[in-house]
Computed example of a mutant assay.
Amino acid sequence: MRKLNDSKEYCSYCGADLQGDLIPEEKQYHYGSTHFTKKIGFSSIEEDRIVKWQCPDCEWKWERE
């Protein structure tokens, strides 16, 4: 089985830790990660995907890469 990403990332504006709670080990493969994220996603109906993220601490928004 491949090693999963631990989702460790930080807000580029305020430096807040955006790594969320641990995903139960038996479900990690389905998420492709070991942890949930604290980022807030903004989706577009037209694009049918998340187009922006927001930090829950400082409310800074940035475009999805």
Rank of each mutant, 00 (worst) to 15 (best):
D6S: 11
R2E: 00
D57R: 10
S12I: 02
H30G: 12
Y29N: 06
G20Q: 03
S44L: 09
C14K: 05
K3S: 02
G20N: 05
E63M: 15
G20W: 00
W60V: 05
E26D: 10
S33N: 15
L4F: 07
Y10A: 11
G15A: 15
S33M: 13
D17S: 10
K8L: 09
P24N: 06
A16N: 15
F42P: 06
E26C: 11
W53M: 03
G20E: 00
E65S: 10
K39N: 00
W60G: 02
I50M: 10
Q54K: 15
S33E: 09
E25M: 03
D17K: 02
E26G: 14
Q54P: 05
W62N: 11
S12W: 02
T34L: 05
W53H: 05
P56F: 03
L18K: 12
K27S: 09
T34K: 00
G20V: 03
S12C: 08
W62F: 11
I40V: 13
M1D: 13
L4N: 03
D57Y: 09
E59S: 04
Y29M: 07
G32Y: 13
S43R: 05
P56R: 04
S33R: 02
C14N: 09
E26M: 13
R2S: 09
G20C: 06
C58W: 15
Q54L: 07
N5M: 04
M1Q: 14
E65R: 07
G20A: 11
E59G: 01
G41I: 09
D6E: 08
D6K: 11
D57N: 11
C14R: 06
Y29A: 05
I23L: 01
P56Q: 08
E46N: 08
E25N: 04
H30P: 05
E9I: 05
D48S: 14
C14A: 13
G41T: 09
S44R: 13
M1V: 13
A16I: 09
H30L: 14
Y13N: 14
D21K: 08
Y29F: 09
F36W: 11
F36K: 01
Y10M: 12
D48Q: 15
L4G: 01
K61D: 03
Y13A: 07
E59Q: 06
S7M: 06
T37Y: 01
W62Y: 13
V51E: 14
L18D: 00
Q19C: 04
E9L: 08
G32A: 11
Q19L: 03
T34Q: 11
D57H: 10
M1E: 13
K39I: 00
R64F: 04
I40M: 09
P56D: 06
E59L: 02
D17R: 02
M1N: 15
K3T: 01
K27F: 10
P56H: 08
Y29Q: 10
S44P: 03
K27Y: 12
I23V: 09
D6L: 08
R49V: 11
G41R: 12
D48G: 14
G15M: 13
P24S: 06
K52A: 05
W53P: 00
W62D: 02
C14G: 07
N5A: 06
Y31A: 00
R49Q: 11
